[in-house]
């Protein structure tokens, strides 16, 4: 490289440059083919379940699948933004459960005080979503100000939120909430579209808009691409990251309250394991775990794949514990496939 044979200054910066192109260049191409092959996988899975268990193509299974998708998708939307920045949020499942418990306790208290059910439900939702957002803000503050890695911070929050969820109800569910709340959980528009599904769909469109069309989304990707570059360009990366973790927590709160509406009760274990689902959905959808590139359309497909696997296995009368195994395998395969594709394309170059 240097005609005079002098050593080129090797700062970490230089090695960054020489390391990234292969991975990211391949990723660019993967971006274009990504959604298509995952959509193919989804169609294939649905076809297999349809053949094996014809019940799977019934209205009942459809409703069950779409409702399951709702919970996974709403968590995965926030997770997409977090992973776009190069982070990860392991706490969304626990925060979902805790938010539901906060909302449940709020509603139980207000109902006991004789407040009308409409106001009780509205305030309960607000409290649950606020609790989730607060947990997200704490994640963001710890990550940016205390410089603890996202993995450890959110793992810690997983523990904290789980504990708080149990403490709120003394380890029990909270079921003394207005029964009207099932109106939200069980209204099916035109018989086929559960209200929570509509909420999730609207949130997905908003998330897509913000990721692709606005400063907020571009800056999230810039941070994931190179936090140092973003900082040097004058972006307040700390504030942006805090907002994004708050968003992930707030969405976990929304998912938690929708689940309360569906179950007519708040359960501290409601979100157990769903951080795994949300991360799997995001990765299957082609969002890079390294940050810098993300797709909401891919996340939607990924969330549907996970939900189809869940309900499909149930309808097919497979022992429900196999769901965990199946989803774990899918997550690993998705990451492996992405790495293979990147390697292949890097070699071609």
């Amino acid at each position: 490289m240097n005609l005079k044979g002098q050593p080129i200054k090797t700062s970490e910066a230089v090695s960054n440059v020489s390391n990234t192109p292969g991975r990211v260049r391949a990723a660019t191409i993967a971006d274009r083919v990504g959604p298509f092959w995952t959509l193919g996988v989804l169609v294939l899975i649905i076809a297999i379940f349809g053949v094996v268990t014809p019940n799977f193509l019934s209205q009942g299974a459809w409703i069950a699948t779409t409702v399951a998708t709702t919970q996974i998708l709403i968590l995965a939307l926030g997770q997409t933004f977090v992973i776009a920045t190069g982070g990860i949020d392991l706490s969304v499942g626990a925060v979902l459960g805790m938010s539901g418990m906060v909302g449940g306790l709020t509603m139980a208290t207000l109902m006991a005080a004789g407040l009308p059910s409409g106001a009780t439900i509205a305030i309960g939702f607000a409290a649950g979503i606020a609790a989730g957002t607060a947990a997200g803000v704490i994640n963001g503050l710890v990550i940016t100000k205390m410089k603890v890695t996202p993995l450890i911070t959110t793992l810690g929050m997983l523990g904290i939120a789980t504990g708080v969820g149990y403490l709120i109800g003394g380890g029990q569910q909270i079921a003394t909430i207005p029964s009207d709340i099932t109106t939200i959980g069980f209204t099916n528009l035109f018989g086929w579209i559960p209200l929570p599904v509509l909420v999730a769909a609207v949130l997905a469109v908003i998330a897509w808009y913000y990721l692709t069309k606005t400063r907020f989304g571009r800056r999230a990707l810039a941070i994931g691409s190179s936090a140092e570059s973003a900082k040097r360009a004058g972006i307040n990366t700390d504030a942006h990251l805090i907002r994004i973790y708050a968003l992930a927590g707030g969405l976990a709160g929304v998912a938690g309250m929708l689940l309360v509406a569906r179950l007519s009760a708040a359960s501290p274990t409601a979100g157990d394991g769903s951080e795994l689902h949300s991360i799997a959905a995001v990765v299957i959808g082609g969002t890079s775990l390294f940050g810098g590139r993300a797709s909401i359309a891919g996340t939607v497909i990924g969330a549907v794949i996970i939900a189809v696997l869940q309900t499909g296995l149930v309808v097919a009368a497979v022992d429900p514990f196999w769901q965990y195994v199946a989803i774990g395998v899918v997550l690993i395969v998705a990451v492996w496939a992405d790495q293979q594709r990147s390697k292949l394309l890097a070699r071609k170059r």
Binding site: L221, A222, S229, A230, I235
Partner: peptide, 17 residues
């Protein structure tokens, strides 16, 4: 190291921040 966000396009990098 150029301080570009390589995953973003030229326009987005010109106006980064």
């Amino acid at each position: 190291d150029l301080a570009l966000a390589l995953d973003l396009d030229v326009v987005e990098n010109m106006f980064l921040g």
